[in-house]
Design a protein around this nucleic acid. Structure first.
Lengths: 80, 80
DNA sequence: GGGTCTATTTATAAATG
DNA sequence: TCATTTATAAATAGACC
């Protein structure tokens, strides 16, 4: 989407990579919030930026860790 | 997007909720893959379905746990 | 339960403040 | 950097199989 069609491969230009990361991370977090709300489910996301900073969803750490722990404590056969 | 505009609130009908979950989860995982590839970054996702089954990204458990551990070991001040 | 179609909404690439 | 604009690509709601 956007002015041009984009091929999904690593963006070598660091500036463009960072800009794309910021915009798409925002879109991703919005979509996760929508999925979580619409279907009333637990979702957690961790995303490292090109510079190594981290974003998470949900922003509340207790809720975030609760979802991760729910995953970790799940019998492996019930995963995916 | 789609035939009608949708309000972001819990879908009470269980069947519609499940269908929406499946479709949007697929879209979400595609977008995460794109972000991860375009900006060459680590991203991890956990999503529980309405019936309690879990989906994850990346599907490879070692890569997945590596990203989670990278997060857990990060100094709290470097988060978000 | 997953796959296809398509009208329509939404995300976003590039350009610009 | 961070926000806004706008043309265009992409996601998806509902219907169907």
């Amino acid at each position: 989407m956007g002015r041009h069609k984009v091929t999904i491969k690593k963006i070598e230009d660091a500036t463009r990579s960072q800009i794309t990361f910021s915009k798409r991370r925002n879109g991703l977090i919005k979509k996760i919030h929508e999925l979580s709300t619409l279907s009333d489910v637990d979702v957690a996301l961790v995303a490292f930026s090109p510079s190594g900073r981290v974003s998470q969803y949900p922003s509340d750490n207790k809720k975030f860790m609760k979802t991760l722990n729910r995953y970790v404590n799940l019998p492996i056969l019930d995963r995916d």
